[in-house]
Structure formats: structure tokens, C-alpha cells
Simulated assay, not measured.
Amino acid sequence: MEAHQRERTGASPPASTTLLAVAFFLPPRFTPERVRYDRRYRKLDQYRFISWFLAAPLLIYALFVISPFVQAFFYSLTDWSGNSATYNFTGFDNYERLWNDDKFREALGNSVLLLVLAPLITLALGLFFAFMLNAGGRHRKNQAISGVFGSSFYKIVYFFPQVLSIAIVAVIWARIYSPRSGALNEGLGVVGLDSWRQEDWLGGDLAIWCVLAVLCWSFVGFYVVLFSAAMSAIPREIYEASLLDGAGRATTFFRITFPLTWETIRTGWIYMGIQALDAFALVNIMVPEHGMDVIPSYLYEKAIRDAQAGYATAIGVVLFLVTLVFSVLMMRLGRRDRIEF
């Protein structure tokens, strides 16, 4: 019946699966006519355009992003020193060694502590300062909410640490924490808190807390600007309606500002968590040797100083897994219904 109808209308018979597969890789001008008039070819043509359009970016991504990860995992299964082209395949011996390495567990604990506390403190301060700058001023005429006077200047001041290189930040704070002539000890002495002065801020148990303070200080300005931009996008009519209902600043923040900026907060949390895990520059420059370690600094020590590149690569794989698990958890646990306004 269908063959008779095709013969009457002059249409070509359906193309075979093989011809359709070959046509997927051919430009439209070289596609056989028999395939071109097949109904299945129309959908194939759509996917062919998308596939060829994404082929080059995907190839570059696979070559420069995915391939190094695969190579890193392979080298983590060897005893490669990093100084020669020879190595022996050792299986999961490096990971078994990690499991029994006390220094690695200490570095992992420090990194996890920064991962938990740094985003919490930094984002809380960023939200507080941004809300005060955008809604903490006195009520002005014909305005539901208003920022403090000179808020633009304060944003520049808060953002200033982001302009500095992280190496410069580490050097400056290393001088501040210096036990002899550092500004911290001298400042405590001036206000009469000599008992709080320390002989070694960065060499003992206080080192992790000093690094945490510098990490939060250096990034809080970025989040003040980021959250200020998100808050300025909220329509003023929403605030006007809440004020008419008698809502105060605290209620306005938790019922309006926080929910409507949640997507930005979640993204900032992931970004700050990654920055906390990558505290190598701060620790390597600011903290004296053996003062404390985080995963990146311990990786650097094993790869460069001890020439144990295979073992260091295994540490890098663990760091990658910790970062991946953190990002996935934040994306899933922080998922909420999108609020349109």
C-alpha cells in the first residue's frame, strides 16, 4: 500500500538505517536525495546541527580538562617521582598509604574545618554588610528602604582586599601576626590585654584560626558587592508592602531579602568553599614550615620537596573528590523552588 502510494506520488522509498547513520556525518548539500526526504532525517538534521556545533568545544574540554584528570588518576596508581619518565604501577598502594598517614589526616582535617567555617562566616558577614549598606539607612522621603550614607564608598573599602594579590595579603598578615613587632601583639599591649599576646601566632594551635580570619577578611568584600547587586534587583514594591504590614528590618531580611537572593547565596557558598579548600598560597607564604598544613600545601610538599609525584597525585585526587562531593551536596541540599519577581 505504502509502496504503491510512493510510486503514485513519486516519493523516494525510506532510507535504510545505514544511510541515515552515514548522512549524520555529511553536510546537507552532500546528503543523498533518498535520505533527504525521509521523515526521520528531519530530526536527525536537528541533532546533527547541535552535535557539530558542540563538537569543537567538547573536544577542547575533553583534551584540556577531562584528560588531565584521567592522567592524574593514572599517575596516582604509580610510584612516579616526577623527575624522570620512568615509573612502576603500584595499584592502590598510594591510597592505602594515605589512609595510614597522620600528617595527611591532619591536613585533611584543617581543610575540612576551613571548608565548613570559611563560607559560613564570610557569607554571613557579606550578607550583613550588604543588607546594612542597602537597607540600613534612615527612611527617606518617597523611599521604602534606603542605604546608609556613603554606601558606595564603603563598598569600595570592603572590596579593596580583592584587588590585592593573595601573596601580598599573606605577606601583610604574616607581619601583622609577627610575635616581635607585629601590629596584633602591639595593639593588644596598647589596650592593656598583654595576657592575650602570643609568642607564636602561626606556629601552634592558633595557626588554623589565624588563616581562617585572613581568608574571611580577604573575601568578604567580594560578597558584599555580589549580594548588594542581588539585593538591588529586588523590586522596591515588595519592601513597601512589607513595611505597610508593619515588618521591621529583621523580618524584612529573613522573609524577603534572604529568600529572594538564595540562588546567589548558594552559588557564593560553593565558590567560597572551593576557595577555602584552595588555601595553599596563604598557608605556604604566611605560615612557617611545619606550622600547619592543608591538603594543597601537603601535596606541594610531597611533590616538590620529597619528589613523590605519584603519592602527591593521589592527594590531588582526594582533594578533587572532596571538592566534588561538597559542590554536589550544596547544589542538592540548597535546591529550592525558584521565586519569580
Rank of each mutant, 00 (worst) to 15 (best):
F73C: 03
F73S: 01
F73D: 01
F73R: 02
Y75Q: 00
Y75W: 08
S76A: 06
S76N: 06
S76E: 01
S76D: 05
S76L: 01
T78D: 08
T78C: 04
T78Q: 04
T78L: 00
D79A: 00
D79Q: 06
W80T: 02
W80D: 03
S81I: 01
N83K: 10
S84A: 12
Y87E: 02
Y87L: 08
Y87P: 09
Y87T: 03
N88R: 15
N88P: 10
N88W: 15
N88C: 11
T90M: 06
G91Y: 09
F92G: 04
F92P: 01
D93W: 06
D93I: 05
Y95A: 13
E96L: 15
E96V: 11
L98P: 08
L98D: 12
W99H: 10
W99D: 11
W99V: 10
W99L: 14
D101W: 03
D102V: 09
D102C: 01
D102W: 03
D102Q: 11
K103F: 11
R105W: 07
R105E: 02
R105M: 07
E106V: 00
E106W: 02
A107M: 08
L108K: 08
L108Q: 11
N110F: 11
S111C: 07
V112H: 02
V112T: 09
L114P: 08
L114M: 14
L114F: 11
L115R: 11
L115W: 07
V116A: 14
V116T: 08
V116Y: 14
V116R: 12
V116K: 12
L117S: 12
P119W: 04
P119R: 06
L120Y: 04
I121L: 09
I121E: 09
I121V: 11
T122N: 15
T122H: 07
L123C: 07
L123R: 07
L123Y: 00
A124R: 02
A124V: 09
A124D: 02
A124T: 15
L125S: 10
L125R: 10
L125C: 13
G126S: 06
G126A: 06
G126P: 08
L127S: 00
F128C: 02
F128I: 04
F129A: 03
F129K: 04
F129E: 01
A130K: 06
F131Y: 14
F131R: 05
F131Q: 09
M132I: 13
L133P: 08
L133M: 07
L133D: 09
N134L: 04
A135F: 15
A135L: 13
A135P: 14
G136V: 05
G136E: 06
G137S: 04
G137T: 06
R138F: 04
R138V: 12
R138Q: 13
R138I: 10
R138E: 14
H139V: 13
H139L: 09
H139Y: 01
R140M: 12
R140E: 14
N142Q: 10
N142W: 08
Q143F: 13
A144G: 07
I145D: 00
S146F: 15
G147P: 02
G147Q: 06
G147A: 06
V148G: 07
F149P: 00
F149E: 03
F149A: 02
G150I: 07
S152W: 01
F153Q: 09
F153S: 12
Y154V: 11
Y154P: 03
K155F: 00
K155C: 01
K155M: 06
K155N: 05
I156Y: 12
I156K: 07
V157M: 09
V157L: 13
Y158C: 04
Y158W: 14
